[in-house]
């Protein structure tokens, strides 16, 4: 794996790999990095140049206090340990993308701007990230209609060459992903917990090695599950896709609700909600908040689900290209 100097610098400054809680200087937060990145961009300095800069120069150029310069220099000295850890991950099939990489998904930069994750760890076919596709979200517990819907969407994606995006967890995620893969399609799972663990699952492993699946996470590859992480991850599912279908949601609580309301507000993409008489209360509330209706029975005889979704929604927002931050 070849890592560009820019990515190397970003990893050194921002990643939590090969760190422990007891270390003196914590890696930069997203906000801290954004402000540093803006400065660098203003000064026309590539991040990679930081690798060869002295402490005095750093203070002078960036106009930062002594303490901050020390922290940055200290973080930049982590190259040895980082190289060892990245090698281990690579030998397990886990790679990294930073905002400075050409392959970093443009959809994140366009839609999330400054809050696009600085780092992504992934296993599998990275070209899938941001290909036309449909996101499926929903709670883990499904009734029959929900189950059928997850299967239907997965299968439709598989047959029409669309990527099936999901959170890669149990329930809706797994069902829709499996039926997409079973229909010889492709899928992306955006994980909130340990990528290292997920790739040991034999189904995942097989799909990854066929090139049909990419698992990706903004968190450290060995991170355990946390609610905060799951919340932060939701928007990363919506913003990779063209359309989202919410299968089942609780009301006013839970990740599905939070993610869907956030998506409705941000208007990244059209959000559909499964609509049927016995639907969970969350579904009807989301419809009231402006989500589009996804009917039950499903639009079965439409050859292309994407066209159906297109003709049953209004375009949300144009996506202007603008200079983006590494």
């Amino acid at each position: 794996m070849i890592i560009s100097p820019d990515s190397q610098a970003i990893l050194l400054l921002c990643s939590h790999l090969a760190t422990s809680s007891s270390i003196k200087h914590a890696p930069l937060t997203l906000r801290e990095w954004n402000s540093l990145a803006r400065k660098l961009q203003f000064l026309s300095i590539r991040p990679g140049a930081l690798l060869e800069i002295s402490s005095d120069e750093l203070k002078r150029l960036l106009e930062i206090p002594e303490e901050e310069a020390k922290r940055i220099l200290h973080l930049l000295q982590r190259g040895g340990a980082l190289a060892i850890e990245l090698e281990r991950l690579a030998s397990m099939g886990i790679h990294v993308l930073t905002r400075a990489d050409a392959d970093y998904p443009t959809r994140y930069k366009q839609r999330l701007k400054d809050s696009a994750p600085i780092l992504l760890f992934y296993a599998g076919e990275k070209a899938l990230l941001g290909q036309p596709g449909i996101a499926v979200v929903g709670s883990r517990h499904l009734d029959e209609a929900g189950h059928a819907c997850a299967e239907f969407v997965g299968n439709a994606c598989g047959r029409s060459g669309m990527v099936l995006y999901s959170g890669g967890a149990k329930g809706v995620d797994r069902i829709s992903m499996n039926s997409a893969l079973a229909a010889r399609g492709t899928a992306v799972g955006i994980l909130a917990d340990s990528l290292e663990k997920a790739i040991r699952d034999s189904q995942n492993r097989a799909a990854i090695s066929r090139g049909d699946l990419c698992l990706v996470t903004p968190y450290s590859p060995s991170a355990p599950f946390s609610v905060g992480a799951a919340m932060g991850r939701n928007k990363l599912i919506y913003t990779l896709a063209d359309y989202a279908i919410v299968v089942a949601s609780d009301t006013e609580k839970g990740g599905t609700w939070a993610g869907a309301t956030e998506a409705l507000k941000s208007k990244w993409i059209p959000v559909f909600v499964l609509n049927y008489p016995q639907m969970p209360q969350g579904n009807s509330l989301l419809l009231k908040k402006g989500a589009f209706k996804f009917p039950h029975p499903f639009p079965e005889n439409n050859p292309n689900l994407k066209e159906w979704l297109e003709s049953h929604s209004t375009n949300t927002k144009s996506e202007p290209m603008q200079p983006n931050l590494f």
């Binding site: 090969a18 760190t19 422990s20 007891s22 200290h74 000295q77 190259g79 340990a81 060892i84 281990r88």
Partner: peptide
């Protein structure tokens, strides 16, 4: 990798 290396805190 998990216990010792972080203590060098990367400064090899």
């Amino acid at each position: 990798l998990k216990q010792v290396l972080p203590l060098i805190s990367g400064r090899i």
